[in-house]
Design a protein around this nucleic acid. Structure first.
Lengths: 142, 142
DNA sequence: CCCTCAATCTACAGTCACTGTAGCATATAG
DNA sequence: CTATATGCTACAGTGACTGTAGATTGAGGG
């Protein structure tokens, strides 16, 4: 039985994050000692490792919740898990495209700046010149 | 003089976002009509366009605040603006790298799944198997 | 058995950059 | 003069945590 700190160390998770996962029902309510401290089994460790791995792959918590539910019912067909992963892949590919466009514009900005006064700074000029705006008006997804 | 809705339309910004920018001091406090409605000048329009363009390039609001301050003092050297842009470029490049690694792993996951039952689903298997974890334990930056 | 001190507990506020909602007030066209 | 589109404030919610304050617990050593 692991205390929360040990579990945190083993999975590279912050203690608060584990408590947060419990709070939102992603981790099951942990067993407690007489004094009220959480104790974790190997199964809990596996579940948290699953969550962290999925997070590292960029899955949002809602998708992870679905994946965990699927994982708990091994007889089902896995189409759904597959499509969640596909969706995630598509999102990642979109973000890469968007970021590559940003990189291009940022590179141009930085390259053209010859380090003179602010008045003729290319960086600020590009930002000021809204004729050069990207056409899309949505949020940058980072 | 533009009402807030007109300004929003011209810049592709939501009305609430403009009010939010005013609240956090990124936009100057707007002039008001007798009835208390905000009215905007061309200068305000330029400032908002600058902010939106910088946001589209992924600059955080704090950086934009700095860039606006610089832009307001045109006699200064532009080294600082340049380095803010460089910093942003580096961040974007880091994120691209990270996302490309994610894409690779996601593609492998999806490719290996042959649509059978959940029990032998490759997607879930990869997620379960924490031996295959990415070595880094930091947040995915999206 | 007692002491100490790191680890844990709860509860809540803060992060970032907005977005949404409720319940009013104002401005403008017909 | 009225309808209604637009505006106002104030506050709560988003995602996925992170940080803090102040109290409690547990494990090791004397």
């Amino acid at each position: 039985m692991l205390a929360i700190g040990a579990l945190a160390r083993k999975t590279g998770t912050k203690v608060q994050t584990i408590r947060y996962y419990e709070q939102i029902g992603l981790m099951h309510d942990a067993g407690r000692t007489a004094g009220g401290q959480r104790r974790y089994s190997e199964k809990d460790l596996d579940r948290l490792a699953f969550i962290r791995h999925a997070r590292q792959l960029g899955f949002p918590l809602d998708s992870i919740r679905e994946l965990l539910d699927l994982s708990d019912n091994p007889a089902q067909r896995c189409d759904e898990a597959d499509s969640i992963a596909q969706r995630q892949l598509q999102q990642v590919e979109q973000r890469i495209k968007r970021l590559q466009a940003l990189r291009k514009e940022l590179k141009r900005m930085v390259a053209e700046c010859d380090g003179d006064t602010v008045a003729e700074c290319k960086v600020l000029e590009v930002l000021r010149d809204h004729a050069e705006c990207l056409t899309e008006h949505d949020r940058i997804g980072a």
